[in-house]
Simulated scan of single mutants.
Amino acid sequence: MKYILRKANEFMTGKAAAVKTAVSNNKGEGYIDTAVKILIAVVLGALLLAGLYLLFGDVVMPTLNERIREMFNYAG
């Protein structure tokens, strides 16, 4: 009977150590962090690109077109 109890105790101790090792392991935690960083970079890049499109469409291009017309205006 003592043999069976000792084996059960060793088995449970081994399983407890394995569970403790698995819970304290943070080996795969970097994947989520990397995915969040990439997602933030994509969103910020899209916002920056949209801002540049608005700036070039409303401010830069009309002024540039006007200056080019003035530069090649041979009539006056």
Score class of each variant (00 low, 15 high):
G51N: 10
G57E: 03
V60M: 02
K20D: 10
F56W: 08
N26R: 12
S24C: 12
Y74R: 05
L64R: 07
F72R: 07
L39I: 06
T63C: 07
L52S: 06
A18F: 12
Y53S: 01
L55V: 15
E10Q: 14
Y74H: 01
A35P: 07
E66M: 01
F11Q: 06
L54T: 04
L39N: 04
F11K: 11
A22C: 12
G51W: 01
E29K: 15
Y3R: 14
V42Y: 02
G51I: 09
Y53L: 03
F72Y: 15
L52C: 14
N65E: 10
I68S: 00
N26F: 08
G14T: 06
G45S: 06
I32S: 11
E10K: 13
L49Q: 04
Y3K: 14
A50H: 05
I38Q: 06
R6P: 00
G51L: 15
L5T: 01
G57Q: 04
E10I: 12
K7P: 02
F11I: 07
M61W: 09
D33C: 08
I32P: 00
A16H: 07
Y53C: 02
N25V: 08
E66I: 03
G76A: 09
I40M: 05
Y31L: 10
I32G: 04
F11R: 11
M71S: 05
L48I: 06
M1F: 12
T34P: 03
S24A: 15
L44C: 13
V19P: 03
K15T: 13
N65Y: 13
L55Q: 05
R69Q: 09
V23L: 14
G30T: 09
L5D: 10
L5C: 03
T63G: 09
